[in-house]
């Protein structure tokens, strides 16, 4: 069964169509990369798939459950890494991750394991507000994969990360993680390299949908024109 199946998805903000007529299918284990200029609806798409926004029209099925009726069955099986880390700035990395671990019913041991994996053990006892943005992003990566989600929703996951850190998190959220992924990206080269399927959005409408092998960089550059 397809991990994602979306047909005619629409979502409005007032009178503005943030998304409309989005149709796509993604098999388990594949990676979908979404390109599009700012305001094209990439973040809205991710939030709909994460059950945080309900679709206004169309059918959306995530991991075999249709939204929004069965969103309770999807929660806890997707990991969202957005622009905001979804972490409390006054709490330490460890406290934040333990809080999420308890919400998701994950053992505390997993927290230490992940802090190690993102090389944050040393500074895991300092409040997040004292850490650099790159470090916070690393903790956010750990937070997104804490409950071992089947589907990862990543919104420019490498923002604020240096090359070494990108290397560091790739076992967790890169292609090596073997998870189904939806990635919003502005980087045609890196994005195309990761993609199995490419979706181009422009003003909320799909402007490009093709297997990655059939897409070249000029088509993606065209989206931003």
């Amino acid at each position: 069964m397809a991990a994602l199946h979306v047909e005619g998805l629409a979502r409005r903000y007032g009178e503005r169509e943030a998304l409309s007529g989005v149709t796509l299918t993604l098999e388990a284990g594949q990676t979908l990369v979404v390109f599009g200029p700012n305001g094209a609806g990439k973040t809205t798409l991710l939030r709909v798939l994460a059950t945080l926004l309900r679709p206004h029209a169309g059918t959306v099925s995530v991991l075999g459950s249709s939204l929004p009726e069965q969103s309770w069955a999807v929660r806890g099986r997707v990991g969202l890494l957005g622009h905001e880390p979804l972490l409390y700035r006054e709490l330490t990395a460890r406290e934040n991750l333990r809080f999420h671990a308890r919400l998701h019913g994950v053992a505390d041991g997993r927290v230490d394991e992940l802090l190690d994996a993102v090389a944050m053990t040393a500074r895991g006892r300092e409040p997040l507000r004292t850490l650099s943005r790159g470090m916070v992003q690393r903790v956010a990566v750990a937070r997104a994969v804490l409950h071992d989600p089947e589907l990862l929703l990543l919104d420019e996951p490498h923002s604020n990360l240096d090359p070494a850190a990108i290397e560091l998190v790739s076992p967790l959220i890169g292609s090596a993680s073997r998870r189904t992924r939806v990635i919003c990206s502005h980087d045609p080269t890196g994005g195309l390299a990761e993609a199995d399927v490419v979706l181009g959005l422009r003003a909320g409408r799909p402007a490009l949908l093709a297997p990655a092998s059939e897409v070249d960089r000029s088509q993606i550059a065209e989206l931003y024109r």
């Binding site: 409005r12 007032g14 009178e15 309900r54 679709p55 206004h56 029209a57 169309g58 929004p68 009726e69």
Partner: peptide, 19 residues
């Protein structure tokens, strides 16, 4: 509030989703 021009479409979707 302002009624959306497409409100009726959204309504059908919404009533479908009402549990």
């Amino acid at each position: 509030p302002t009624l959306q021009p497409g409100a009726t479409v959204g309504t059908q979707a919404a009533s479908r989703t009402a549990l």
